[in-house]
């Protein structure tokens, strides 16, 4: 015990000679100020970086992976593409959203099925797969709704399938 007392006394005296209490308080204050600024630092919030999944398949075929929940004419056959509207049409800002599994990487992606509006029905490449489709009383999850109601013209032409994110997996988040 005596040895321990002497050891700590010596260490305490050394510290006392090499430092001062005001310095300690200054250090604490600096730490407090420094720590409090951490939450103010810019952080990457919900990233707006577009999700670019690996692609495979033919976007003009109903079997294409993004179309798992679609019900309509494929814009890819109508002068547009799977994520752009044909010339002369307007993409409806409101849409219905589902998830599809990409066979390349095995991940589920959030797909926005924005309708293209303003011209009469395209009439080619009708595709109806309806995975996850719900009855009309769940209008936000029904692909039978005419989503062109959100556009300038409510006349439906064709549908796109735009990847807007990666589906959240409860199991892999833990």
């Amino acid at each position: 015990m005596n040895f321990i007392d002497k050891f700590f006394e010596k260490r305490a005296r050394n510290v006392a000679q090499l430092s001062n209490r005001r310095g300690f308080i200054k250090g604490v204050a600096a730490t407090l100020v420094g720590a409090s600024t951490i939450p103010l630092l810019p952080v990457a919030r919900a990233s707006d970086t577009p999700v670019l999944p690996q692609e495979a398949g033919d976007p003009s075929s109903c079997d294409y992976w993004r179309y798992c929940a679609i019900d309509g004419f494929l814009c890819d056959c109508c002068g547009g593409s799977y994520n752009t509207c044909p010339p002369g049409t307007e993409m409806s800002p409101i849409t219905w959203i589902g998830t599809c599994r990409n066979p390349i990487d095995g991940r589920n992606y959030v797909i926005s099925y924005n309708d293209c509006c303003g011209k009469t029905q395209c009439g080619t490449c009708l595709c109806q797969r309806d995975e996850g489709d719900r009855p009309l009383y769940r209008s936000d999850k029904s692909n039978d709704v005419n989503w062109c109601l959100g556009a300038t013209s409510s006349v439906y032409h064709c549908s796109t399938a735009i990847v807007v994110g990666i589906a959240f997996d409860e199991g892999s988040s833990k």
């Binding site: 919900a46 800002p93 994110g165 589906a167």
Partner: peptide, 26 residues
């Protein structure tokens, strides 16, 4: 935040749009 964003996308974004701008009667 990942789950919250996903749930927003799945159950809100369709009408309220990705950045919450909305439109027409939304």
């Amino acid at each position: 935040t990942d789950r919250a964003k996903f749930n927003y996308q799945m159950f809100c974004q369709g009408c309220h749009t990705p950045d919450g701008t909305g439109g027409k009667s939304v």
